[in-house]
């Protein structure tokens, strides 16, 4: 698979990376990344994946753009108010990189549609803002053996972990049960600075690109915690749990990541 002159020029600054290669770029082009949630985390994630040349970027969100979103969701602009987030994000991404196929799923991820939406993805990046959706995405990815980058931001705290089902701890292995209702506010109820979400989303995008290209060492069996106030970063080790209802019976992933 050869890259066109325009692709060579567009991606030249990543193609000169010693760790990158034409083969890595070609792997991105054939990849299909699904971004669940096109808000504070999904904006930087979808932007960097599309800009880097991921062939197909799917966007899942049922929301419309609200004025209170704009401080942290840089894919949506003021004239986009009241429009579906998937549509306003897709518009920007297609202008950013016409080489990329952008697919819009203007729907709420639910138990009914999760398996169908995840099917065919080469990677899923969870940018949702609820525990319910995070477990749902995790379970669908585990069931289908699709790698997942899970991320969350709350106030000045951020967290990212990468999951290769059958090979590393899944979200359910690391967080067996959701925290009791009320003890942890959802992103919707809590304050957040856009720049902090941008940090977490950028880490998620980087993890997804590493995994797709097959370079570097992803956050497998490690949870990255970022404190935006002190800039302290902590890696917390985690491991697969026997009898995990999501991933215990998943066979080891065939691909070497």
């Amino acid at each position: 698979m050869t890259l066109s002159d325009l692709e060579l020029e567009r991606y030249s600054r990543q193609l000169v990376l010693p760790e990158w290669s034409g083969a890595a770029q070609a792997r991105l082009r054939t990849a299909n990344a699904l971004v669940v949630g096109v808000g504070a985390l999904g904006s930087p994630v979808a932007t960097y994946l599309a800009a880097a040349g991921v062939g197909t970027v799917g966007l899942v969100d049922s929301g419309t753009v609200e004025l209170s979103n704009l401080h942290r969701q840089p894919l949506h602009f003021t004239p986009d108010l009241d429009k579906p987030k998937t549509a306003t994000a897709a518009l920007k991404l297609r202008v950013l990189n016409p080489e990329v196929q952008v697919e819009e799923y203007n729907a709420h991820l639910s138990e009914e549609n999760a398996d169908a939406v995840v099917a065919g993805a080469s990677i899923v990046v969870d940018c949702s803002d609820s525990f319910e959706t995070r477990y749902l995405v995790n379970d669908a990815c585990c069931a289908q053996g699709v790698p997942l980058v899970s991320g969350a931001v709350l106030g000045f705290g951020g967290q990212v972990m990468t999951i290769v089902p059958g090979r590393s701890a899944c979200y359910r292995c690391a967080f067996e049960t959701p925290p009791p209702r009320g003890s942890v506010p959802s992103c919707r109820d809590a304050g957040v600075l856009g720049a902090m979400a941008g940090v977490v989303g950028s880490v998620q995008a980087l993890e997804a690109l590493k995994l797709l290209a097959g370079v570097g060492r992803p956050l497998l069996d490690r949870i990255l915690h970022i404190d935006g106030l002190t800039m302290e970063q902590t890696l917390v080790a985690t491991e697969r749990r026997d009898g995990c209802p999501a991933c215990a019976r998943v066979p080891a992933a065939p691909q070497s990541v």
Partner: peptide, 13 residues
């Protein structure tokens, strides 16, 4: 630069 090196690297690959 750096397009010349991009092309050389891809040829080397």
């Amino acid at each position: 630069c750096p397009m010349n090196w991009v092309r050389a690297r891809l040829a080397l690959e």
